[in-house]
């Protein structure tokens, strides 16, 4: 299998807090890769560094064979990494459809002149954009909420909308930060089949999740972070039995 993402020695600290210590991991094309660890282990920080929201202090990241320099977030999105946020970040006053359309910003081109004169190309682009947005809303199962303002959507639907918006950027890697947080059993089950469907469609998924059953049931491989350090990386079964991992989780909750 080809490698899609490779992180080598990624380091990040906030003042005295060492949030990521020399984290190295490899994600292969087409897999669902889990990133787990106790609260404050540095999982979200890894996402933020990966997507260019925070500059990293050290280490290298290569994506699809190319080195990702200290890129800004929009360049990362363009390169093909899309993400969702742990605490949902939608454009609250825009409709569901508009949210997804914004996600497509990086794959469209119309500028001010096109907007004002609405030439042929702009109209075509806009129409295609709308179609694609509706397709994605249907894909995640909320097409009936297309015209509703994002803030009025139910919690589970907001999570889905965030995924649709991320998919709109045409990513090669989709990074989901605790997508099942706050969901009930039914919602989690349908989220699981949604993520499985994404993989079946050829997408690579990087998943942060606390729901152990979901992680174990979905992921091909799992990495465990503890105090900013990667302490394990393996198939779920082995990770679950790894004494260091058990120690980290028990130590964390004790």
């Amino acid at each position: 299998m080809t490698v899609l993402l490779e992180a080598r020695g990624v380091t990040k600290h906030f003042g005295g807090v060492q949030a990521l210590k020399e984290v190295s991991l490899t994600i292969r094309q087409g897999e669902i890769y889990g990133l787990i660890g106790p609260n404050g282990a540095g999982k979200t920080t890894f996402f933020n560094v990966l997507t260019g929201l925070y500059p990293r202090d050290g280490g290298e990241i290569s994506f699809g064979g190319e080195t990702l320099r200290l890129a800004s977030p929009h360049e990362v999105a363009k390169a093909g990494i899309a993400r969702t946020f742990q605490n949902i970040r939608l454009f609250a006053n825009m409709t569901a459809r508009e949210n997804v359309m914004v996600g497509r910003h990086v794959r469209t081109r119309a500028g001010v002149v096109g907007a004002v004169f609405r030439d042929r190309r702009t109209r075509d682009e806009e129409a295609a954009l709308r179609r694609r947005a509706d397709e994605l809303l249907r894909y995640v199962g909320i097409e009936h909420r297309a015209d509703d303002v994002a803030r009025h959507l139910a919690y589970g639907d907001q999570r889905r909308l965030e995924i649709a918006r991320a998919l709109a950027t045409d990513p090669k890697l989709l990074a989901l930060d605790e997508p099942a947080a706050g969901m009930n059993a039914t919602e989690t089950a349908s989220l699981k089949s949604l993520i499985e469907g994404l993989r079946a469609d050829g997408l690579t998924v990087l998943l942060i999740e606390h729901d152990v059953r979901l992680v174990m049931g979905l992921c091909d491989r799992v990495a465990v972070l503890d105090y900013g350090e990667k302490i394990a990386e393996d198939v779920p079964i082995s990770v679950q039995r790894n004494p260091k991992v058990i120690e980290a989780y028990l130590g964390g909750s004790a």
């Binding site: 929201l53 946020f85 454009f91 508009e98 914004v102 991320a166």
Partner: peptide, 28 residues
């Protein structure tokens, strides 16, 4: 015309949530 366009939506997206706008690939 601007409001109902790719640029107009990008403006509103920045107003609503700048971080998410960046993550959507908007060069803020």
């Amino acid at each position: 015309r601007l409001q109902d366009s790719r640029i107009g939506r990008a403006w509103v997206a920045i107003r609503e949530d700048e971080v998410a706008a960046k993550a959507c690939g908007i060069n803020t």
